[in-house]
């Protein structure tokens, strides 16, 4: 789909969607949102970019193979669960770092688990989407 309008707007649209996906991911801790839906948004950003500018440039924009991204996310989630081995609590227990005075941000293993989910969904769905788009191009 090489229309001028889409090709012009797609990079901006994709960038906006990526920012929004990170926003949804981070807000998901206490509000609606989270890793899964954030990952879907990010995957659709790459899908749109791939439709507008071709799969090759979408793959270049990702730098890593989508499946490698999914793998890194899975590894991160498992490690976030395994972190509780150090504190004498069961697997997958949420751990919070002590709050830093003056900064309203709670660093936790739950956050890393969710980022892992985000990357798994992003990688897996983009992998499927780009493969299907490649089939269309032929």
């Amino acid at each position: 789909m090489k229309t001028l309008i889409l090709r012009t707007i797609a990079p901006y649209l994709s960038a906006l969607m990526m920012i929004f996906s990170v926003f949804v991911l981070l807000r998901g801790h206490n509000d609606p949102g989270g890793g899964f839906i954030g990952g879907l948004l990010a995957a659709s950003a790459f899908a749109i970019y791939g439709i507008a500018s071709g799969v090759a440039s979408a793959r270049r924009a990702m730098r890593f193979h989508p499946m490698a991204i999914a793998g890194s996310g899975l590894a991160m989630s498992v490690l976030a669960g395994l972190a509780s081995i150090l504190f004498g609590v069961p697997f997958m227990t949420g751990l919070w770092a002590p709050p830093i005075p003056g900064i309203e941000f709670e660093l936790s293993s739950v956050l890393f688990f969710d980022i892992g989910v985000y990357l798994v969904v992003l990688g897996a769905i983009t992998s499927v989407a780009l493969a299907l788009e490649e089939r269309d191009d032929e």
């Binding site: 490698a68 999914a70 793998g71 890194s72 899975l74 590894a75 498992v78 490690l79 395994l82």
Partner: peptide, 11 residues
């Protein structure tokens, strides 16, 4: 599970 994830990264 962890090993599978790492092997996917090393595809």
């Amino acid at each position: 599970l962890l090993a599978a994830a790492i092997l996917v990264m090393l595809r």
